[in-house]
């Protein structure tokens, strides 16, 4: 059986100035993976590659065995929440979701049903007619998450999903993510150890665009140690 996501030798940028260097990993169906690293480690860039926003200089990204650049249709199996929320402030919650649904080929009754489902899932059904520009930060983040979920993706890519939120809003987003269907594979890019500890079963450590570690996340895992051993922070980078 193919993994949900198969990433081989993924690099970005010209050979002399790589932003990402030969990243390899597999993501199993239903697995929850954290991308951990300091700012500038390459987490967002890696997610942009996995989402298909960018095309790698080398390597391949396969979803259920299909390369996401060879067959664009396979991208409907991916949901992506960028760090900057992709919202139209002048459109309502409903309309923003209709746009996200349209991008993935949903329309008519199928789109309406999907929007109803996801609005209830993220708890925004009561504000569906409100303009996105008038939502609180926590609600806007939930709307972004709903956009990523509206087409029922098999893989969910989240870039700093709790960044800039207050503790209550952060807890709400984490609760939503832990309550997702167990079949959904999840990749969360974050520099918050708490996010990894609560949401992920495995963590990839990135530093300077390179994969520096691949660890299981256990209750007693010392995630801070992974940060401490990052070469860019300890001055031992031998690139």
């Amino acid at each position: 059986m193919n993994p949900a996501l198969h990433v081989v030798n993924l690099s970005l940028g010209p050979a002399r100035d790589r932003r990402l260097h030969a990243i390899d990993f597999d993501l199993a169906h239903g697995e929850r993976l954290g991308l951990l690293g300091v700012n500038g480690a390459g987490k967002s860039t890696l997610l942009q590659l996995l989402a298909g926003v960018l095309t790698p200089a080398s390597g391949e990204i396969r979803v259920d065995g299909i390369d996401i650049h060879d067959d664009l249709a396979v991208r409907t199996r991916i949901g992506y929440l960028p760090q900057r929320l992709p919202l139209y402030g002048e459109l309502s919650v409903d309309e923003n979701l209709a746009w996200a649904a349209m991008l993935h080929g949903l329309h008519g009754d199928a789109a309406a049903d999907a929007i109803d489902r996801v609005l209830h899932q993220v708890g925004l059904a009561g504000v569906r007619r409100r303009l996105a520009g008038r939502l609180s930060a926590g609600m806007a983040q939930r709307l972004g998450l709903a956009q990523a979920l509206v087409h029922a993706p098999a893989i969910l890519l989240l870039d700093e999903p709790t960044a800039g939120l207050d503790p209550l809003q952060t807890d709400e987003i984490r609760r939503l993510l832990t309550g997702l269907d167990a079949a959904i594979s999840l990749i969360v890019a974050t520099h918050l150890l708490d996010d990894v500890q609560r949401l992920c079963s495995r963590v990839l450590v990135l530093d300077g665009g390179r994969k520096r570690g691949d660890h299981a996340v256990t209750a007693d895992a010392d995630l801070l140690a992974h940060f401490r051993t990052a070469p860019s922070l300890t001055g031992t980078d031998a690139r």
């Binding site: 989402a51 298909g52 396979v74 992709p86 991008l103």
Partner: peptide, 14 residues
């Protein structure tokens, strides 16, 4: 500028 282009580019649309 608003960051929405990422979702257009990530979509299956040509």
């Amino acid at each position: 500028h608003s960051g929405r282009l990422a979702l257009w580019l990530a979509s299956p649309l040509s």
